[in-house]
């Protein structure tokens, strides 16, 4: 089977990195070769590279900056190995981008190489973020992201939550909103991602394949 590139984009703070880390583990469990590239040069905290050591133990490659940092690097120092992996096409790749248009600007330099490969672009949405809280705002964000990279978003991930204060109704309401976006844009909802306790309670009508999220970047006490 052909290797794929999964590009994770969206509004910042929508949960891209938590999803990317969990998604990498899921692909690995399906016995696929996985390389996670953390392209977030905008955020200084809560980046998927913080999970480098535990992911490597699971056999998942992690590339980010030239210093292979885990925490504390303020400089972009984008690793040239990222382009290498995209070109060599030896593994499935997850490109975990920074938030908003600013966060995906870095993708532009890989535009030609990505276009030639089999790729998906997933836009993560938490409808409880003020700047993606309505159908129009989500579509506006989608258009802005697509304009920046020149490629089309191929699927939505509904990651709507209030962290520990989430209720099932919150997720159901978010699903209604995102369904409308999906109908208007003709882009499918690929996953509905949430903590296990919420996934178990979800009614059948909620769109998207169930995706259990185990928070790894955010510690229990936070």
């Amino acid at each position: 089977m052909q290797n794929k590139i999964y590009i994770i984009v969206g509004h910042y703070g929508s949960g891209k990195s938590e999803f990317a880390v969990n998604f990498a583990k899921k692909l690995k469990q399906e016995n696929k070769e996985v390389c996670l590239a953390d392209l977030d040069i905008v955020n200084p905290y809560f980046r998927s590279r913080e999970m480098r050591l535990s992911l490597i133990k699971l056999g998942i490659d992690v590339i980010s900056d030239t210093l292979n940092s885990v925490k504390g690097l303020d400089m972009p120092y984008l690793s040239p190995a990222i382009k290498g992996q995209i070109v060599h096409n030896k593994k499935n790749m997850i490109l975990d981008c920074g938030g908003d248009v600013v966060g995906i600007r870095v993708l532009k330099q890989f535009y030609q190489e990505i276009k030639e490969r089999n790729y998906e672009i997933y836009m993560i949405v938490n409808v409880y973020r003020p700047e993606t809280s309505t159908v129009d705002k989500i579509i506006e964000m989608k258009n802005k992201l697509e304009n920046e990279i020149g490629l089309s978003i191929t699927g939505f991930i509904n990651n709507s939550n209030f962290l520990k204060q989430t209720s099932i109704d919150d997720i159901i309401n978010a699903d209604k909103l995102l369904k409308e976006v999906s109908q208007k844009t003709n882009v499918p909802i690929i996953y509905i991602s949430a903590l296990e306790k919420y996934i178990k309670q979800l009614p059948d009508k909620v769109s998207g394949e169930r995706f259990v999220l185990n928070l790894s970047l955010r510690t229990d006490w936070l």
């Binding site: 955020n43 809560f46 409880y128 962290l163 955010r218 936070l222």
Partner: peptide
């Protein structure tokens, strides 16, 4: 501290 600046919360 930086954590409060950087974290998400309702």
């Amino acid at each position: 501290d930086g954590l409060i600046g950087q974290m998400m919360e309702p």
